[in-house]
Design a protein around this nucleic acid. Structure first.
Lengths: 337, 337
DNA sequence: GTGAAAGCGCTAACAT
DNA sequence: ATGTTAGCGCTTTCAC
C-alpha cells in the first residue's frame, strides 16, 4: 500500500553516494565522471525516479505555472483562446492554472488572489464585463507577477496586452456592407466602457463616414446578449426608417438577429444584411450562413501566452507596455448581399 | 525592487517569538494564549502575510490541485463540463491544472505524465477518440493518484466514472421520433468501441423494437463529424428507402444534417425529423431549431469533481468502482414532428 | 504556553 | 570528482 516515490536521497543511499552527487549526475553537471553519471541515471531510470516538482518550486520560489482568468469558459471565443494558451504553455513546459470569473467582479478578484497565493509566474487575464474597480489587477503588478491582458483589456492598468484589431475588423465589415448597397447600417454593441466595443464603434463610424452615410444615434444600441436582442431588434424593425443592415458585436446576437429579422417577414440578405463577430461554429449552421469577422482566438491565446512567457524568462525586456494586435478577417457568407 | 514576501520567520523575528509559536498562533492552535494569537494575527494582517503554498505542498506532499484532461476545449459539451469542474473545485479550494489532449493519443499520454509529475491529488479524464492503449491510465492508479473518468470513459480501466445516461437519452429520443410517426429512423453514431456511442445505439435499437420497427444495418452509420456528414447523409437520402428521421450523435452533425436535408429539397420536420445530442447553443440558431438530448455537461463536471474530491479526502470509501449516471432530458424544438 | 530541532526533496556554496 | 552543509517556508514532535 505504502508507495513513497523514490527520491535522490534513496538513490544516493543505494549507490553509496551523496545526494548532491546524485543531483548533479542527474542533470549532467560537467564535474561528474562519465561513470558515475551513467550509474546514477541508469538506476534512476530503472526505479522510475521522478523529480519532485514541489521541492523544486519551493527552492526556486517558482512553480512554472501560468494562471489564466477568463470571463466565461462555455464560449467559442474564450475557449479558442484557452486552447491557444494551453498549446503554447505546454510547448514551453508551463502548467496552466485555470480560473473562471463567470463575468462576476467578485469572482475575478478572488481568482487573482487564488493565483497569487498559488505563486504563479504570470497571469493572463480577460476582464469581466462589470469590472470597474482595478485594484486587484494592480495587486498583481505590485507583487511583481507578470500580467498580460487579452481581448478584454483593462483600461486603467498599465500592462502588456494582446487584442484583436477590433477597429479594422469593424471598419472592414461595415465598409463591405456599404459597398454592397446597405445605407442604414445599425451597430449592436456593448457598453462603451469596454475597449473592444468602443473600438469597433469607431471603425463602424469611420466606415460610414467614408461612404458619406450619416451616423445616427438611434442605430447604435447596446445589445450584446440574446435577451437584449429579443427586446431591442424588434423595436428597431418597427421604426419607419428601419435599418437595412445589422453589424453585431458577436455571433450569438447576429444569429438571434437573423431569426428575428426572418420572423418579421424580411428576407436576408435581400432586405437586410447581417454580420457577426468572432466567426465561431454557429456561423455555419444558421440559415443563411452568417457573414462574420474572424477574431482568431486561438492565435490570440498563443500570442498572449508567448508574450507572458517571454516576460517571465526575460526575453522580452521592453520597459514600457507591449501591445500586440491580432489581425481580423471578414468571412463572407450568405447573410450579407 | 526586491519584494520578498513576508514569512513566518519574519513575523517571529519581529515579534521576538519562535516560528513554531507563530505558526500555531496563525492557525489558532489551542495551546497558544489569546494574547499572543491576537498579536501575531494582527501583525500578519498588517503586513499582508500569505502562507507559502509551495512550502505547504512540499511538507504534505499534496498540492490540492486537480488535473483535468479533456479531448477538446473548443466544444460546447466539454467546456460546459470544465465550467462545472471549475466551480466545484473552486468551492472546495482545489486548483485546476488543465490539459488538452486534442483528440490525440500521444498528447493524452503526455498529459498524464505532466499531471503526475506535478503531483496532483487526482485526475479527471475524458478519453481521446483514438486511444486504444490504456497503460498511461493504469499508471495513474499505480501511482496511487485518484482517477475519475467522465463521459468518454475507458473501458479497460477499473476506475470511478461519471457518465450521461446515454442509453436512456437515446431511447427516449428515438421513442419520441417513433411516437410522432417516424418509421425509418437512422442513427448517425461514432465508432462502437466508444461506450457513449454503443450505449446510445442500444437505446436506439431498443426503442425501435418497442415500436416493432426493424433494426436495419444500412441505417446505422459512423458519422460523428461534419466532414463525414457531408459524405454519408447525401448517400442515405439517395437510397430508395430513405430515412424519415435522423438521430445524431451530436448537435453539430444534426445541424449539418439539417442543412443537407433541406438542401436536398426535403422539409424538416414534415418529411424528415432530426434530433441532436448535447443541447448546446447551436440548437437555438438553426432553422428550424433543433430537438436535442440535453447531457447536462455542467452537472457532469460538478459531479465528477465532487466524486474525485470525496475520494481524495476519504469521504467516499467504497472499495469498488463508483459509477454515477447523469440523467438526460429530451428538449423538443421544431426539427421533429 | 512557548521554543528548539528535525525534516519534507532539492540545490548550491564551500570544502576536500 | 565527490562530500558536507545550509537553506527554501512550513509543521510537528519533543522538550521545558
Amino acid at each position: 500500500m505504502e508507495k513513497r516515490p523514490i527520491t535522490l536521497k534513496d538513490i544516493a543511499k543505494a549507490l553509496d553516494l551523496s545526494t548532491s552527487t546524485v543531483s548533479r549526475a542527474m542533470r549532467g553537471h560537467p564535474a561528474i565522471s562519465e561513470e558515475t553519471r551513467k550509474l546514477v541515471q541508469q538506476y534512476a531510470e530503472e526505479h522510475k525516479y521522478k523529480p519532485n516538482t514541489l521541492a523544486l518550486s519551493l527552492r526556486t520560489n517558482k512553480n512554472n505555472t501560468i494562471g489564466v482568468i477568463v470571463p466565461e469558459i462555455v464560449h467559442f471565443f474564450f475557449s479558442s483562446v484557452l486552447a491557444g494558451i494551453q498549446d503554447e504553455a505546454e510547448s514551453e513546459n508551463y502548467h496552466l492554472l485555470m480560473c473562471n470569473s463567470n463575468e462576476m467582479y467578485e469572482r475575478e478578484v478572488k481568482s487573482v488572489q487564488t493565483l497569487l497565493d498559488a505563486r504563479v509566474c504570470g497571469i493572463l487575464a480577460s476582464m469581466s464585463k462589470n469590472t470597474l474597480e482595478y485594484r486587484h489587477f494592480q495587486n498583481i503588478i505590485d507583487d511583481d507577477v507578470h500580467l498580460v491582458f487579452f481581448d478584454r483589456i483593462c483600461p486603467g492598468i498599465n500592462a502588456d496586452k494582446v487584442v484583436a484589431d477590433d477597429y479594422r475588423g469593424a471598419f472592414t465589415a461595415v465598409d463591405y456592407l456599404a459597398e454592397t448597397g446597405c445605407s442604414r447600417i445599425a451597430f449592436l454593441g456593448s457598453d462603451s466602457h469596454l475597449p473592444i466595443s468602443n473600438n469597433r464603434r469607431m471603425g463602424y463610424e469611420d466606415a460610414l463616414r467614408k461612404h458619406k452615410l450619416p451616423v445616427e444615434k438611434k442605430w447604435i444600441k447596446v445589445c450584446d446578449t440574446t435577451a437584449l436582442a429579443q427586446q431591442v431588434i424588434p423595436e428597431m424593425l418597427d421604426e419607419e426608417n428601419r435599418p437595412d443592415a445589422f453589424f453585431c458585436i458577436n455571433d450569438e446576437v447576429a444569429a438571434y438577429c437573423l431569426q428575428i429579422v426572418k420572423a418579421s417577414g424580411f428576407r436576408v440578405p435581400e432586405d437586410i444584411s447581417i454580420c457577426g463577430f468572432t466567426n465561431g461554429y454557429i456561423t455555419e449552421v444558421t440559415d443563411p450562413a452568417l457573414t462574420s469577422v474572424d477574431q482568431h482566438g486561438y492565435e490570440m491565446g498563443r500570442e498572449a501566452a508567448r508574450l507572458l512567457i517571454n516576460r517571465i524568462e526575460g526575453v522580452e525586456t521592453k520597459k514600457g507596455v507591449v501591445s500586440r494586435l491580432i489581425k481580423t478577417d471578414l468571412v463572407i457568407r450568405q447573410s450579407t448581399r
